[in-house]
Design a protein around this nucleic acid. Structure first.
Lengths: 312, 312
DNA sequence: CGCCGTCGATATCTTCTGGATATCGCCTCG
DNA sequence: CGAGGCGATATCCAGAAGATATCGACGGCG
């Protein structure tokens, strides 16, 4: 039995007339008679009563037609669902990202994405750069956003593109001695208690800073000490109440409150680039849609992405 | 798109291998490749990723396969539902019957029918012979059981068969003068208050009895008077408390209580036969099943039914 | 009462497509 | 670098879906 038989039976039930049903189906009347007869033979049951006043389904026909309608509805739903999935209108996209991506990049890109693809289930999870790379390679994420291009085993299976650059800024409370300064020198930071983001791999932000400041010792041992805070608002909050000097990417400015001051660090210190990665062999249309939007919203990303994708 | 495409796609998803899926489908590998390719072309979407480690559905493929499974399940359900309906295992049977059919005939036949066809919805309604005939012709009933063969317009479209014969018996309370008698003569009934079943057409039971007893006047006017009671238990109940002499079919005996006596009426008076009717053109398998059971349970019905059905 | 028109079934032929066989190209693995 | 496995492609064939012509049955109408 083929779905053709279902369509024919439904047309016949609708028109109650072999000739008109056949015309509606775009075939001649004899083939319709034959196909209905073949269907009835296969089922071992008469589906239609041919009376002088028209063709009417039997009890078996009614039972059959009810199921046939649902079967055909499922089939057309299969077509449309497949199409929507192929166009990336439905599906799932799992993002792993570091907290600072939440400050500028993600609000812009995700806002557009959610408006364009309301039926895509988004999975968002803040995590370290290292963890996101691992999860991406394990297939647990579709996109990873971190600082610095992924390194290590499997990194060659990923495509990465720079989506943002930041330099280091200092955040202090309004009462802090630095508060009036537009710039803070590295020299001035020596010996200050610092508030920075933690890291789960070497070199940590703290040790990297220690080296930058010309302090040789391990971070916890350095003069002034270090506090690690996971997210931007905690760094700013701690800085505002005078715990120490917050250090982070320039995008911290968007989260700054009135009671803190953000100072440029002089000389300017570039942070590792904000990098978006995905699996090179991932052909998901949802991913493609996300990349499209990233292209639109992040000037300069487009060309870099094309160059990378060209080699896929 | 035909259901073949769904079957092929599901087989391919299951085996993750064109060759093995084709073997499972009983076809060669090239036709499977072609059909999948044609399906993907029609949908405008790739459904399977052909990798070195196997064939795996894409996101669109997953969406498609989920619907395809349900569509095929509906199709096989259509086949089985149609078969069961055709065999009379499901469906509906609406019976209209007079109360006395509940005493002997229906308990026996319905008991077997419900055991054999638990999924058939039964519609049972007590009604007069006249009403059941009307409802049967109007298509509101499938079977009518009454006394006497249906008459009037449309009766020739019905098949009727005698399913029981009864003669008249009298029911009296234990304290009644007739209680000790095995027989009651028609002469003795004259002037007694009678309790009989009502009727919605002429002649009513009461007028028929009046004629039988040689009483010329209308029933309500006759000496002794008449009480009409719809069902057997009411007739018996009224007789038991001395209201009068209950008159009804011999099958009343099965409903008799210890405090009443049932007397034969002498000479024996035959009542109109208990007749089962159905539409001659009704080919419902549920009806056929019911007739089969009636045949088994009612000796003598079989031959009469065959004779009637032979002419359909 | 008989003729005609309608409708579904049947017969025959055509066409198309689903399937088989043979082979190719590609990738992986030893 | 060669061998083997796998999916795609090319070609051919057969069966079945469909078209055309016709038949048979039934109902309506003159």
């Amino acid at each position: 039995m083929e779905s053709r038989h279902l369509r024919y039976a439904l047309a016949l039930a609708e028109h109650q007339h072999f000739g008109r049903a056949a015309a509606a189906l775009g075939i001649a009347q004899p083939p319709l008679s034959q196909q209905i007869a073949a269907l009835e033979r296969e089922l071992g049951a008469r589906l239609f009563d041919r009376t002088a006043r028209g063709v009417f389904p039997t009890a078996a026909g009614e039972a059959f037609l009810a199921r046939a309608r649902r079967a055909l509805a499922e089939m057309s739903a299969a077509v449309s669902d497949a199409g929507r999935a192929a166009r990336g209108e439905t599906g799932r996209l799992r993002l792993g990202f570091i907290g600072s991506a939440l400050l500028e990049l993600l609000p812009s890109v995700l806002g557009t994405f959610i408006r364009d693809r309301p039926e895509v289930r988004l999975g968002l999870q803040e995590m370290s750069t290292r963890r996101s790379t691992t999860a991406l390679l394990a297939g647990e994420l579709d996109i990873a956003i971190g600082r610095g291009a992924p390194r290590g085993a499997g990194a060659e299976d990923l495509v990465s593109v720079t989506v943002g650059r930041d330099h280091l800024v200092a955040v202090v409370g309004a009462a802090h001695p630095f508060a009036g300064q537009a710039k803070v020198s590295l020299e001035q930071l020596k010996g200050q208690h610092l508030i920075v983001a933690p890291a789960d791999e070497e070199p940590t932000v703290a040790t990297w800073l220690a080296g930058l400041l010309g302090e040789g010792a391990d971070a916890p041992e350095r003069a002034g000490g270090v506090t690690e805070a996971w997210d931007a608002h905690t760094i700013i909050g701690l800085a505002s109440c005078g715990v120490g000097v917050g250090l982070g990417p320039a995008c911290l400015r968007v989260a700054a409150r009135p009671d803190v001051r953000v100072c440029e660090v002089s000389p300017r210190v570039e942070l590792p680039e904000l990098v978006m990665s995905f699996r090179a062999q991932d052909r998901s249309p949802v991913l493609a849609a996300f990349l499209d939007i990233t292209r639109e919203r992040c000037p300069g990303v487009a060309q870099r992405l094309e160059r990378r994708l060209g080699t896929r």
